[in-house]
Design a protein around this nucleic acid. Sequence first.
DNA 1: GGCACGGGTTGAAACCTTTCAATCCAACGA
DNA 2: TCGTTGGATTGAAAGGTTTCAACCCGTGCC
Lengths: 350, 350
Amino acid sequence: MARVGDEGGTAGPARSAGVKDVAARAGVSLGTVSNVLNRPDRVSARTRERVEQAMAELGFVRNESARLLRAGRSSTLAYVMLDATNPFFTDVAQGIERAAEQADLSLFLCNSDQSAERERVYLTRLQEQRVQGVLITPVDPDEPLLDEVVRQGTPVVIVDRVRDVDSHCSVAVDDVLGGRLAIEHLVDLGHQRIAFVGGPERIGQVRDRRRGAQAALADAGLPADALVEVRTEALTVSEGRNAGERIAGMPSATRPTAAFCANDLVALGLLQSCVGLGLRVPDDLAIVGFDDIEFAAAAAVPLTSVRQPRGQLGRRATELLLDEATNPDHRHEQVLFTPELVARASTRRS
Amino acid sequence: MARVGDEGGTAGPARSAGVKDVAARAGVSLGTVSNVLNRPDRVSARTRERVEQAMAELGFVRNESARLLRAGRSSTLAYVMLDATNPFFTDVAQGIERAAEQADLSLFLCNSDQSAERERVYLTRLQEQRVQGVLITPVDPDEPLLDEVVRQGTPVVIVDRVRDVDSHCSVAVDDVLGGRLAIEHLVDLGHQRIAFVGGPERIGQVRDRRRGAQAALADAGLPADALVEVRTEALTVSEGRNAGERIAGMPSATRPTAAFCANDLVALGLLQSCVGLGLRVPDDLAIVGFDDIEFAAAAAVPLTSVRQPRGQLGRRATELLLDEATNPDHRHEQVLFTPELVARASTRRS
DNA sequence: GGCACGGGTTGAAACCTTTCAATCCAACGA
DNA sequence: TCGTTGGATTGAAAGGTTTCAACCCGTGCC
């Protein structure tokens, strides 16, 4: 087919055809074309066919901007993810996608990559595009723009973070309980000196998971200094490796016999560097991660981890968002899922 | 602030304010508000301030649909990814994002999740939204809709797949060479019986990588049956595990001494199940993966892999897309990057 | 034969922003 | 004083779709 308008041919015109052109070609009115597009049942079969053929011939592509301008709301959702390279978030995204698909909505993913600035840019664009709603794992749950967006009419659901205020729905996992489960498991195995590997401090998850860990230690009658802090700059594999070197470097008398990591990326990095430096896992160092990403089980020393129901998280968040978008007497809700410990070789009693 | 319009207050109105409302409140004309938005230098400081204040007071959110309708092209790109949970693609996406950010464009990610149907839905929506351009790793590079989209005026660049036709730009890695590098490495280490683990057959990558492998074997003077086919249903971790069980089940006399996997997910699964089944890596089975995703290095037996320049792939693809979108005498280009073997413990001579 | 009914179709108005030619006005030079 | 200049501002028109009240006309009923 040709690329520029050749009158009478069957190719598309130079500048894309609109409903008007389609109407002219099919010999019907604008309104009818629109009906074919939006309420095909109201149009007689014969007319519909003619219109559809005209569309095909002209290569008609509906102009979403114009549609939206007139019709109000779009049929897309967006998930602003904190880190697209962390499998945890892509699994959450998959849960969202499935739920969105069922509701016949498209999902756009936006990666803030931990940058508050990029997050703001995305939020603004999404607002300007009048998306049905936004799911977000925010860099900082207290970001004021989040409230602003809601106030201006775009529903926002917070995923994997909690917020005390009731201006949004949120869906998260009980991180304190998760920390508790990890430590109880290690204590059961006889560990009395346990590293907590995570940071930076400003991440709520890190604080909550540590808090759960501390509480569990206290309940077990162990002193507070049974938990050895090993700080990381971020929750990444390379920071985990880094932490591993520090732990391996400790004199064996004072070295912890187990490590609880704030997430699986850190745990995998830790695992890797320990093995590389001659520490046996779990004999010299037992390791517990958090999230239970797929790669945790696939590590050659499969990783014990605290599982979050990732898909569920996404699914439930989407349901809340849709309710908020469509149900006039929607009530905000803070959903808290319960994590679960999955024991694997990295903490096996040997 | 209140949520419904309270005359004279400072809160936003019930239904969001438009430029008209802003103009009224600031005591200027429509055009001036638009100028503040689009050509702030043409507006006197005093007026600009007044307008900006009015915007803030009314909680004005620019309506992108209306803007687009009038102004033509949007300032967003989209990357339709084949599998958002495969770290390879998220790394590519990150490269794209960086390049897009530099050009002051937003990037939306869409996950086709290997479904041709979903891919089509996304392509159509993106077209309807008049995005600047689309980057895509297609389920099937021969999908006719890809040509259709281009013909109708939306630039499309194909990422990580090649296509003989010249209707798009494409950016990929020389998979044949990659396969060759992997096998040459294994042959150098003395392996004479090597499994090729991958599938399904319809994936171009699988075919090309095998082709390279075969060529390298031939060059080394080894018979064609030195390459043992181990088919997978998909390039996933669980399929890799599956393949591992089959390999471990072979009688040790005929079992390959090395495996070349079509990607790292498969290799990680293979690694995991081999270790679990008592096969030592690399002593009993050396393993080479493909992609060199971060988790390859982080595996407890760090994985030898064929590295693809993932970020580069994304960056270059974006540059091509922007050129196509802006440069009137753009020429389509097929870029082929060179892969590189990264040797790690999974093939170390012991 | 007249009338009510209703499915199918019509076309003008509305959605909100950007654009651009026209206008305004203050300052300046002659 | 008048004309000119140029920066600031104006407002009508345009952009493509959806909506909705109105209309048309064939059918069935009384």
